[in-house]
Design a protein around this nucleic acid. Structure first.
Lengths: 231, 231
DNA sequence: AAAAAAATTTAGAGTAAGCTAATAATTTTT
DNA sequence: AAAAATTATTAGCTTACTCTAAATTTTTTT
């Protein structure tokens, strides 16, 4: 009949779930609230920008996102709930694999990335109960509740992070402009991805990889001032 | 370059895996070795016959099946290996869900039907080891080994089967023609699906459902002669 | 404020898997 | 062995998601 107004939403496909999840992640790591860009999405999803535009139109039509052509997107409540479900599925599964099947933390993401889309609610709830209803994954990231509530993330100092675990820089605790400039010069801006490759003993410098591109040695005292969040 | 001869096979999509699995199941439940029919496949996969024909051409091109237009298909070794992998994934997962997450047998198939396509080898092997490397699922069906070997199925008398568990009739142990005619008249031919809905006490009659269609009461002594295999 | 650069959207196609309707081959019935 | 019924295939479309190239809009630089 009509295509616009009172339309029941389709249940999201795997592709939609991926889009919504990435929009959520980008949204919550935006500095400002200006909407998530097509370009960022294209990068994160490894598809062309044209494909993103295309998909955004569909997601907007089904009211999973608010979409202002040329000005980016943001999730609606319905979209946020889909994203939360993916995050819950992902984190519960990861926690389960580590706790019950001897996975190490770095093996776990790949598996969860696919399976998060296909786990039934029942299975996720059973794993979660079996684990003792955890509120955080072994990483420290909060697990959204079944009804989509999520605790605000706790930032951690870079010095507390496990080797090989990718994190994102969220806050730099009162540093001088000179130091900030230096940090920027090695790619350490807010939202940069950091992986600690090695940590010298006796509070020695960290060997870090920034945005999967460059390696740098980072002074321990500097690392203490960098606050990060699990990816 | 060339499209025919020495072509590396594509890795099978989910749809392909489903086709190959069903071909395997039909092949091993065929009375004769005449090849699996398009029509049967269409029914089991719940798609149109034209869609099946279409897909068969692709599967044949990739050499997962031998396909003789109009005369049905059979699996090649490559196709059989794909089917075995699905069966292993399915049965290991089912066993795991029952043993470790408190699933009951009748909840388990639905979950496994989807997930079998997305489980990594690593995860299946870990579940399998955690379970103590079982060779059979809780149902009694053999679990194929990692290299695709499967033990010939053990037939069980219908009287040994758990309530609500769908099984297929495979062998009727020396009955008179009159009895066989009677059995046929209530739909109990080889490969009929049977679900026991209830079992009266003191070796009383079984209430069975045949091919998801009709209910019948079956004498206990008759049931003793019906040999079935887990679905 | 114009020019240049970057980001976004539109236009037009491709691929995988499905469908219906029409046609062809095979099998069964008469 | 012809006719009828069944099964299988072909032809032509559809939907979901993707792509490249071209056109457009926004942002940044000069």
């Amino acid at each position: 009949m009509n295509t616009k107004a009172n339309q029941k939403r389709q249940t999201p496909s795997r592709a939609w779930e991926d889009y919504l999840k990435i929009i959520y992640k980008l949204e919550s790591s935006e500095n400002l609230g200006k909407g998530v860009q097509t370009k960022e999405l294209a990068q994160r999803l490894a598809v062309s920008q044209a494909s993103v535009t295309n998909m955004l139109k569909k997601l907007a039509e089904e009211q999973y996102i608010d979409y202002q052509p040329y000005y980016g997107v943001s999730l609606t409540e319905a979209g946020r709930l889909v994203a939360m479900k993916m995050l819950r599925n992902h984190r519960v599964l990861e926690t389960y694999l580590v706790a019950r099947l001897g996975y190490s933390w770095d093996e776990v993401d790949e598996e969860a990335e696919t399976l998060e889309h296909f786990l039934s609610d029942k299975l996720v709830e059973r794993m979660w109960h079996d684990l003792g209803q955890p509120t955080h994954d072994p990483h420290g990231s909060p697990i959204p509740s079944i009804d989509g509530q999520i605790e605000p993330v706790q930032l951690q100092s870079l010095t507390e992070i496990t080797l090989q675990t990718p994190v994102r820089l969220k806050w730099i605790k009162n540093r001088s402009p000179e130091e900030l400039r230096y940090l920027a010069s090695i790619g350490l801006h807010i939202n940069a991805q950091i992986v600690i490759k090695n940590q010298a003993p006796f509070q020695g410098p960290l060997l870090i990889e920034v945005d999967d591109q460059h390696f740098h040695a980072l002074d321990y005292r500097m690392a203490l001032a960098l606050f990060v969040e699990a990816e």
